[in-house]
Amino acid sequence: MLELRLVQGSLLKKVLEAIKDLVNDANFDCSATGFSLQAMDSSHVALVALLLRSEGFEHYRCDRNLSMGMNLGNMAKMLKCAGNDDIITLKADDGSDTVTFMFESPTQDKISDFEMKLMDIDSEHLGIPEAEYHAIVRMPSSEFGRICKDLSSIGDTVVISVTKEGVKFSTRGDIGTANIVCRQNNTVDKPEEATIIEMTEPVSLTFALRYMNSFTKATPLSSIVTLSLSSDLPVVVEYKIAEMGYIRFYLAPKIEE
């Protein structure tokens, strides 16, 4: 028996909006520690890892480890029917081939039940090593979203370089080139507006902008985004989910032939 009650149902709505265009079908794994997902996009260039810890749910009952295969587009369609202030409860009976999404309005005067068929998805989980990164950039998520959007109007790849001056985003295309440098600034009065750079050594990597733009759909989840870069690893773009967990996007770089 699985019953997960999330008072801040809007978080789950935002999570689906963030991943439904990147991944089509995925297994949601439920265990005592929480509700998680790990899935790659169809080209295996990007990977998304989601964790919603059990403590973040108002009620979390998971009698035994369960993996539920879902079509994320269909799941997003159902979650769109939930109000932003609704409480969302996920329910599944053992051995059942469906999952139920229950939406309760804040005043409990409207209760909705949406039942969706589950799918069999065979997906191997990848081992993601906890790595020491050469550079970690923490910046406003709206700023990062704006940069990815602006650069993608000029070119289709972005070079992200971190030096002691700051973090530089560069692109080039038929019409010309663009360079955006964000300097460390932790003097701002609001912490979520700060750009903080930790660097052990300079790093420069090239990525496809269309994946970065897809990741920025997670912007509504957090006012801060963290980019972790290392010369020989995929970049990690992380949006923390308040008090509950995180959504992490891993993107493989484009490398010299």
Binding site: M40, S43, H44, V45, A46, L47, E124, H125, L126, G127, I128, P129, T157, T206, A208, L233, P234, Y250, L251, A252, P253, K254, I255, E256, E257
Partner: peptide, 14 residues
């Protein structure tokens, strides 16, 4: 010309 790598070439299956 740069070639797009895949995630699987960095992270092995568990």
């Amino acid at each position: 010309q740069r070639k797009q790598a895949t995630i699987s070439s960095f992270f092995g299956a568990k």
